[in-house]
Nucleic acid binder design. Sequence first.
DNA 1: CATCGGACTGACTATACGGTCAGTATACTA
DNA 2: TAGTATACTGACCGTATAGTCAGTCCGATG
Lengths: 204, 204
Amino acid sequence: MSFGGKTKHEVLSEFRTAEILEAARRVFAEKGFSGATVDEIAEAAGLAKGTLYLYFPSKKEIYMAALRNGVAELGEATGKNMERAEGIRGKIHAFIRTRLEYVERNRDFFKIYHAEFGNLTHPLAVGEAFRKLHRQQVEALEGILEKAAEGGEIRKAPAGAIAMALYEMTRGLMLRRLLGWAETTVEEDVETLNEFVWRGIGNS
Amino acid sequence: MSFGGKTKHEVLSEFRTAEILEAARRVFAEKGFSGATVDEIAEAAGLAKGTLYLYFPSKKEIYMAALRNGVAELGEATGKNMERAEGIRGKIHAFIRTRLEYVERNRDFFKIYHAEFGNLTHPLAVGEAFRKLHRQQVEALEGILEKAAEGGEIRKAPAGAIAMALYEMTRGLMLRRLLGWAETTVEEDVETLNEFVWRGIGNS
DNA sequence: CATCGGACTGACTATACGGTCAGTATACTA
DNA sequence: TAGTATACTGACCGTATAGTCAGTCCGATG
């Protein structure tokens, strides 16, 4: 017997996995990877520690799964909104807006995400895969910028540096909101950044 | 007996302290705070673990000292070069140039510095003081921008967001160089960024 | 009702590591 | 030379915690 093509076991398994990841996100967000203990995550999930190990092989894997989830979601949302947008100006606006809005709705995830950037320079740490992913995203942005420059939509400039700058300044404003340093609304930040970037790269 | 106003004890003490910090910087840069062990640092310094505890009360203090050192140096260099520079345009150029050049000469320190940003959202972690320091720097930049806007040197725009963006985009390019993603020279990056920012905030 | 299987539990183990301190070696002093 | 102070050592201790596994619970099955 099955529902929606899923056995009872699969349904339960997915439910528990999601439940554990949700708790893990909360705990990792608050304490960071090393600071968090598996016991805490288990407690937050309302399960015994042993149970977590029925669904994940290690603490690290729990962390990776929680991170991957959110990264994929953010990446897809950003990509989709950029595709939909018209012209380079629209795409950049979509990039900035999607990311800034995402933080507001996913604070816990963003804390983990942000912390992972700190590990970017520690090859042995958790996120080897994460570094590649980040680089891909920057390079995608770079490609878009280069194409726009060739098409004369924006002025010619070293696309690699500009892409990284754009990526990181956006992340900077995400961080600023997260730390509660911003007295402005998301919309205002989006417009400020968009205007700034557009003047910076536009060919006017 | 003393030389240069320092007792023999003081001279030795300063020498050992510097020696330990230098080793600590290497190890922390490679492994991060949690990943590094005191034994490793001791070995890197060519001293026994017990000796480290004659000069520092804890692992955390060693880390903080290594971090503080570099942060102060970078902050002072940046401040000095900005003061010396003429006009807002010169100051921004000095800000970007000083920081980007600093990474090249202090890679180990920068890895630690960068990793610490990841902990910015974890209040219980190592750097409570670090967060305040960072905020101060962003606010200083913000003040300069506001003054320039009042004086009509640049167009009016929300200075808080712009300051953070400027700060973080610079850090982004520092990171890019550190990760070996940059095929450009420091000078090129400085010029690219400077041009970008100036167009972004200029009132032309 | 008796038996079975699988989800779940939490006390327990093994280990890694921060920090300590009794002991050694060396330089200085009387 | 004997005595003392100082810098240093590294084996050791206590603790924290990732991961394990023998045992419990409970719903399903015949």
